[in-house]
Design a protein around this nucleic acid. Structure first.
Length: 632
DNA sequence: CTTAGGG
DNA sequence: CCCTAAG
């Protein structure tokens, strides 16, 4: 069953939009919802979903451990929160850990949600990801690393935008939590993290309740090795506690951490440190449930639903893991090592992103929906699914064939993803474009062949290549990208993002075609006949043979002509003095033509609505001695 | 799709 | 040339 579930992940997701559904199915589904002030959940809008998707995606794909906390934090600060709805059927055993973690996390999140005003950062409405069902992700053929990614991919397809952030996050969290101080596991990031983790031995016994926010933050830092800007005491406490105890079953309040154990101040319960990490966590969780430890209402809700499902799968799902609860981290370590999965090495990107996020966060500058999101979002997008996939396969980008100046070449292909303002700071990917080399030749040829209009039309239009491969994803993702400026979750796009736009750019740019004298003449004539502004007409009638000149081109050219004409006139004499100024590469336009252009321009502007074209039967430039030519 | 404009 | 906003 599990397996089947996993396979159907995507499908399930699609179908599980409605979080009302119970967790009868295995798949874990996250739905993005908005939590209103009153705590009600409202389905997120596409935009919101979009945002989250990115965010989530990032998280999942490359985020390793501990940092998760940070992310979550970010989440909050951004007024977004991840909520998992635990209809619980634990997925496969593997997943379980995650699941459990998730549960806990959710609890935390919920907690946060419940206490909106605690933190200034919390805004009235929030975005929440609801976890509808458990997905047996782990069973998927993809291994840990890929799982989330895959998940994302599938998610994207869904318009409903089901997000499964918690999964990874949870997982990570689990890792973090379970990670013992001396964890020497082979996991790359783990070691890394570990190193950064200050010895919280000093925190072995602490009563978090007595700490100030600042102290808590400090403790947080000590525990997770990273700074936090969260000012939510409760949250901090919980995080810290969890971190120290490797447990997620942390009461909302009144608890003391003792030797990696949580000691309920209220004497409610004592949660054994779950060294077994996730797995153990599960146990712990269940335990907690039994004990009805937490006072949190939301918690109860969660647990109820959560456990609801659990009963069925209960034993089977649970890790076979022996409940050997060693309070000792070491034990945890061993256990961890024994566990095959949960190995995800941090991506550089991830790291950067993370830091970036933090940076931003610390800045205290919550991104304002207005501006930057536009770019960032777009930029980020690409990396999300399609590209990722590609990336993993081979670091190459998809290419398409294009003909430039008669040369057939492969150019990186990227589907057009946005319609918003283009990014300007990208580094031209054009260098790639073969057209450069060909250009000279071609232009030269063209010059000589001004007549044959049809020539070289190939280059002009980039063919819309159906991206079959990315189709699905695109549908879900890229497409959505178009949505205006959605406030993006984060602005850290720099790494992956910028690459995409460039590519696209390069592809699209039409081959440059120098205007020939002949064309200019025709243009001028056309303007004279039909009037400036009738570009389509002119193009149709006068440029019938030059298919590569669009009305826009004509317009642009005309504009340039006017510009040069005016300049030339003024500086005619000067030009002689400074011949260098004349661009040798531009075709010198005979003064006569310029003159005429000028006149026409003047007439046009003057006439205003006197659109009536002046009939110049004669081709000679001089002919047009407009009555008003004097004006200019 | 066309135009007009800014880049 | 590109990209967009307006028609």
């Amino acid at each position: 069953m599990e397996v089947g579930g996993s396979q159907d992940v995507l499908e399930n997701k699609n179908e599980e939009n409605d979080f009302e559904k119970n967790g009868s199915s295995d798949p874990v589904v996250y739905q993005l919802v908005r939590v209103e002030c009153d705590g009600t959940l409202v389905p997120a809008t596409d935009d919101e979903v979009l945002q989250f998707e990115h965010f989530l995606h990032d998280e999942k794909v490359d985020l390793p451990s501990i940092e998760d906390e940070g992310h979550v934090e970010e989440f909050f600060t951004k007024d977004c929160m991840l909520l998992k709805k635990p209809d619980l059927e634990a997925g496969s055993s593997k997943l379980e850990t995650t699941e459990v973690q998730t549960q806990k996390l959710d609890a935390d999140l919920e907690e946060d949600r419940v206490r909106p005003s605690d933190d200034p950062l919390h805004l009235p409405s929030k975005c929440t990801v609801v976890h509808n069902q458990q997905i047996d992700i782990l069973n998927t053929e993809q291994q840990d690393n890929n799982i989330f990614q895959q998940d994302n991919a599938s998610t994207k397809t869904t318009k409903s935008t089901v997000l499964n952030y918690s999964c990874s996050a949870e997982k990570e969290k689990a890792d973090a939590c379970s990670r013992p101080v001396n964890d020497t596991s082979t996991r790359p990031f783990v070691s890394e993290v570990t190193s950064s983790v200050p010895d919280f031995s000093i925190l072995r016994e602490v009563c978090l309740d007595n700490l100030t926010i600042r102290e808590l933050q400090e403790a947080f830092r000590a525990t997770f090795g990273r700074q936090t800007t969260v000012k939510d005491k409760l949250w901090l406490k919980r995080q810290i506690t969890m971190g120290l105890t490797n447990s997620c079953g942390v009461p909302n309040s009144g608890c003391v951490v003792k030797d990696y154990k949580i000691v309920g101040k209220d004497a409610k319960q004592e949660i054994p440190a779950t060294e077994g990490v996730p797995k153990v966590e599960l146990e712990a969780t269940s335990l907690a449930r039994d004990q009805a430890l937490d006072t949190g209402n939301e918690r109860d809700l969660l647990s109820s639903s959560y456990y609801h499902g659990e009963d069925q799968q209960g034993s089977s799902k649970r890790l076979k893991r022996v409940p050997t609860d060693n309070d000792e981290p070491q034990g945890t370590l061993l256990a961890e090592q024994g566990t095959a999965k949960r190995i995800r090495k941090p991506t550089k990107r991830y790291i950067e992103e993370l830091s970036d996020i933090e940076t931003n966060d610390s800045t205290g500058k919550l991104f304002s929906p207005g501006k930057r999101p536009a770019h960032d979002e777009v930029l980020r997008k690409p990396r999300v699914t399609p590209f990722r996939e590609i990336d993993s396969l081979s670091t190459t980008y998809p290419t398409r064939k294009d003909t430039l100046g008669g040369f057939s070449v492969h150019v990186p292909y990227v589907p057009r993803m946005r319609r918003g303002r283009p990014r300007r700071d990208f580094i031209p990917f054009l260098d790639h474009e073969p057209s450069v080399e060909c250009t000279e030749v071609q232009t030269a040829v063209e010059m000589m062949l001004e007549k044959d209009g049809e020539q070289g039309n190939h280059a002009s239009k980039a063919v819309e290549v159906p991206l079959t491969k990315n189709a699905e994803k695109k549908g879900g993702h890229i497409e959505t990208t178009d949505s205006k400026e959605v406030q993006t979750v984060q602005a850290n796009d720099f790494c992956s993002a910028d690459a995409i736009p460039k590519i696209k750019r390069g592809l699209k740019r039409k081959h440059h075609r120098a205007w020939t004298l002949c064309e200019v003449l025709k243009l001028v004539d056309g303007v004279a006949r039909y009037g400036a502004g009738k570009w389509s007409e002119i193009r149709r009638l006068a440029f019938a043979s030059y298919s590569y000149r669009t009305s826009v081109d004509l317009k642009d050219k005309w504009r340039n002509l006017i510009r040069t004409a005016s300049q030339t006139q003024l500086h005619t004499e000067k030009d002689r003095a400074c011949p260098r100024k004349n661009n040798p590469y531009t075709i010198p336009i005979p003064p006569s033509i310029l003159l005429r252009v000028k006149e026409l321009a003047g007439l046009q502007s003057q006439a205003g609505d006197l659109v009536v074209p002046i009939k110049l039967s004669g081709q000679s430039s001089k002919v047009v001695q407009g009555k008003r030519s004097g004006f200019l």
